[in-house]
Design a protein around this nucleic acid. Structure first.
Lengths: 343, 343
DNA sequence: TATCTTATTGTTATCGATAACACTGGCAAG
DNA sequence: CTTGCCAGTGTTATCGATAACAATAAGATA
């Protein structure tokens, strides 16, 4: 009770000590005898004292706040990364503040400027592509910075992610090996999602090895089931008709599969479908999507652990690249030569 | 550049005025001539000055922070509510801090206590069921409090939501009218999601009107596609076999539909399926789910508008109840008497 | 001309904590 | 018996802003 009004001096007066002793006792810092500490803690608790973060952070010139920027919360991937981070961070007594940039580097940059005024303990960004200036600004502050979900040879500071280009290439190689030769990529407007573009480039590289060209279909819509559906319908109008559709992620892939079936095609007999991420919708589908499984929660957890260490001044590894595996499902299958339309 | 080090006195010195004038000028507060203000603003911008939120909030005893608690970010519903709020809040210069309580009132309560130490401008909670004490604590602080997603006759302060009991009843009435008489509810462990329990109670009420009893299947798992799948399989083992399955939400419903089909039943011929929320997966399904469409984004936007007004001291309406409509799909259909198993 | 406004600007105190330093008294070493 | 050290505690200054009040100058009023 009386939470909002009890301040450190009230506790000090009640305990018959100075404010400083209370501060030391509650933070578990050296400089108070165990007897006094116990008494102070008991009194503070009884009075319902909660230290003002504002005052504390101002005095210490740093807070217990970790600010996190993700493109969107509508994509389960980012929710899972955040979920993975949050447990570890909360456990370490850190609070999190989440921003959504809607895939806009300018918004991310503006947010970084605002957010710095809270003196956070650390900053987390999604991906490794940022507006010019963001990088320099963060480096200048000297606080721990974590980039998740993508990798960079030269991260701002710390980095935990996966190599999207390699993932795309591996999926492409897998599909090429199955015999697909008319692949299509279905994503969203170029430039909005740099990671997706890297995967697409990897796919294109792999198909180029077998002299196949990846056609590209992009929607202006948000990445969603509908975008996949519409994208698939658009792809089917292409001549020659693609023999495999590679989607931005599993949700688009599912939408796309529905689109193909609505168009009278059967999967995988008439056309192959490949997704990305291994989202949990896949666990209930009668035909599992061929996809790449990414360790989102683990990525978050690893990132959080590294951050906590960095905040405490321990510098270890700065760059972690996580493994991803192609998981063949029932939406693709070996292509017989006779299946292949003449090129 | 030099962001982190420029403080208000530096700007004041550069402009040849006092710190107070700079403060006034930048906040757009009365008390500086237009000429000086323009000059100060220009200089502050040039120097890259960003006021410390910590110091500012401490001095003003309130911040530009709106703290939001939701059960989870894995459910698109909450992501959409947050999305709807955020635009309006950001536009009003308010920052948001999001917490996930994992449907645990104790965690929510602990968070409220911590969060208050940041002197937020307002607090947003999900639902109207809270731990004892949370309500009193928030009322005592006097800050604007918004409860979203559910309604209460006597909210803590402000409230924007839907009446889950009524929604359940309307869906139940709709299904009863179609002739269903052996309904099953498939959700998660009782008590975890109070809103879902209200809908279930509403369903049960409506079916009771036609002397039908609602059986209940609950999973310990998180609300997900898989929980729906497993729940459906469990429901099908029930004797007499249910003729319609009512799910916690559309994602469970989709999983459940897959479960039914895996079990050799066809929807809606052999069994009906009803979901909740009108999630966007529904837009790509060959058979649209029968569901209740809820205005999540609008709810968020409305809540945010009311909050901004309250923060600025304008008190208007305090309680808004939003309309919800039952949207018949292709997963239910009129039941002929002959379809009905003898009771 | 003397006085009163009013607009503009500056000064000082304060928000609630913590850092840095100063002070005690008791005990061990010489 | 004195000195020195150290653990335990208090005092003062500071973090970076803003509220409250004080001061100034220019124009309005009588």
């Amino acid at each position: 009770m009386e939470h909002s009004t009890v301040k450190i001096e009230d506790v000090a007066r009640e305990a018959g000590v100075s404010a400083m002793s209370v501060s030391r006792a509650l933070r578990g810092v050296e400089g108070v005898s165990e007897a006094t500490r116990a008494r102070i803690v008991e009194i503070a608790e009884r009075m319902g004292y909660a230290p003002s973060r504002l005052a504390g952070s101002l005095a210490q010139a740093t807070s217990n706040l970790v600010t996190i920027s993700v493109p969107t919360l509508f994509d389960a991937v980012f929710a899972e990364i955040i979920g993975g981070m949050r447990e570890t961070l909360t456990h370490a007594g850190l609070e999190t503040m989440i921003e959504t940039s809607d895939y806009d580097p300018a918004r991310e940059a503006a947010w970084v400027e605002r957010m710095i005024t809270w003196s956070p303990a650390a900053v987390v960004l999604s991906g490794t592509d940022h507006a010019p200036g963001t990088r320099a600004l963060l480096r200048a502050t000297g606080m721990p910075v974590m980039e998740v979900w993508d990798t960079a040879k030269d991260p701002i500071d710390l980095c935990v992610g996966i190599d999207h280009h390699v993932i795309g290439r591996e999926m492409g190689a897998h599909l090429a090996l199955l015999g697909y030769r008319n692949p299509a990529w279905i994503g969203i407007t170029a430039g909005r999602d740099p990671r997706a573009e890297k995967r697409r480039a990897g796919l294109a590289d792999a198909f180029a090895q077998v002299h196949a060209r990846l056609i590209e279909i992009r929607s202006d819509a948000a990445p969603s089931f509908e975008a996949g559906y519409d994208g698939a319908r658009a792809a089917l109008r292409h001549d020659p008709r693609p023999d495999v559709l590679c989607f931005l992620n599993d949700h688009l892939a599912f939408g796309g599969m529905m689109g193909c079936e609505d168009a009278g095609l059967s999967v995988p007999a008439d056309i192959g479908i490949a997704g990305f991420n291994g989202l949990n919708i896949n666990n209930v589908l009668p035909r599992r999507l061929t996809t790449s499984v990414t360790p989102r929660a683990l990525m978050g957890k690893t990132a959080a652990r590294m951050l906590v260490a960095a905040i405490r001044g321990v510098r270890g590894e700065t760059r972690v690249e996580m493994p991803v595996r192609v998981e063949p499902g029932q939406t693709t299958r070996p292509r017989l030569t006779s299946d292949r339309p003449a090129s």
